[in-house]
């Protein structure tokens, strides 16, 4: 093709455990400050609970827990990114959410074996952008619930 204009991937950049991550902006419904979260007993450990997002009960995933990072107390900058994916509304708790940037698609590289501290299965790739290293999350994998089926673990508590 004559036109080699680069296609861009519009992404939201957020911070988690001192690393920067990105995910496609069209997934994102809104970014919220921390609200009261109701714990769901018996759900997977990384499911923080549910919150009332303008009348919709929305489940919240703690990304730190999801990736096995050490938990920290929520601060002023802690945010919940509400994403809409596969007919599900889910919130992700991140340390901070920054800007929306355009990542040229040709800058995307497959994830190297060792990048940051997130296990490679959750990563779609990495991108270098103005001296920043952005890690692209694979939302499907993040939401996949290999541990969500905690029902069985719970059943022995029945009367």
């Amino acid at each position: 093709m004559a036109e080699v204009t680069t296609e861009y991937l519009k992404s939201i950049v957020f911070q988690l455990n001192d690393e920067e991550y990105a995910m496609p902006v069209d997934l994102v419904g809104s970014i919220e400050r921390m609200m009261h979260i109701t714990r769901i007993p018996g759900a997977a450990p990384f499911v923080k609970g549910v919150l009332n997002l303008r009348g919709v009960v929305t489940p919240i995933i703690d990304l730190r827990k999801r990736f096995g990072f050490e938990s920290v107390d929520y601060s002023e900058s802690t945010r919940t990114i509400i994403i809409h994916h596969n007919n599900m509304d889910v919130g992700l708790i991140v340390d901070a959410a920054y800007d929306v940037i355009d990542i040229p698609k040709d800058r995307l590289e497959p994830a190297p074996e060792i990048v940051g501290s997130v296990s490679i299965e959750y990563i779609d790739g990495v991108a270098k952008h103005d001296d920043r290293l952005l890690i692209l999350l694979n939302i499907d994998k993040v939401l996949a619930d290999e541990a969500l089926a905690s029902k069985t673990a719970f059943q022995d508590k029945q009367v």
């Binding site: 007993p41 018996g42 759900a43 549910v50 489940p59 719970f154």
Partner: peptide, 10 residues
């Protein structure tokens, strides 16, 4: 509870 959390016991 939505589509994400299903089968929560009790």
């Amino acid at each position: 509870l939505g589509n994400y959390l299903t089968d929560i016991f009790a």
